[in-house]
């Protein structure tokens, strides 16, 4: 079964970059544009890993993360923050909410893969038959 990775970001560019980073791996990347869509996607698809932005319309990443951690069925899903927010106090506050890792934008594909590889056993995409 391919791993399911959820990218929650209001930027199409970032969601595309996440998708592109994992195109050679046995992964399916699901997209959500804000925290509300993210929570709906989590309930529907139960991803193995979430990349989460902070500043988004409708529902921001901190609110989504707080709601996720309040849900006993979902709170163990690993979350990696992928955000331009990097002030020490912000990072410390979010770390307390329980995230697996924190990647500050700008980023390279390799960094995403390396961070995901600490959480998931990434396998190459099987060759098409």
């Amino acid at each position: 079964m391919p791993h399911k990775i959820l990218s929650v970001d209001d930027s199409l560019t970032i969601r595309m970059l996440v998708k592109r980073s994992f195109k050679n791996f046995d992964c399916v990347v699901i997209e959500a544009c804000n925290g509300e869509e993210g929570l709906a996607a989590i309930t529907k698809d139960r991803p193995d890993l979430i990349f989460l932005d902070i500043t988004m319309p409708v529902m921001d990443g901190v609110t989504m993360l707080t709601k996720l951690k309040e849900n006993p069925d979902l709170k163990t899903i690993p979350v990696i923050m992928l955000t331009a927010e990097s002030g020490r106090e912000n990072v410390a506050y979010i770390a307390k909410l329980g995230v697996r890792d924190y990647l500050v934008k700008p980023f390279k594909d390799d960094q995403l893969i390396e961070k995901a590889g600490r959480v998931l056993k990434l396998e190459p995409k099987p060759a098409a038959v």
């Binding site: 955000t83 331009a84 927010e85 990097s86 002030g87 020490r88 912000n90 500050v104 934008k105």
Partner: peptide, 8 residues
């Protein structure tokens, strides 16, 4: 984000 981190 980079500027605001230094400001923070």
């Amino acid at each position: 984000g980079g500027l605001r981190a230094v400001l923070a």
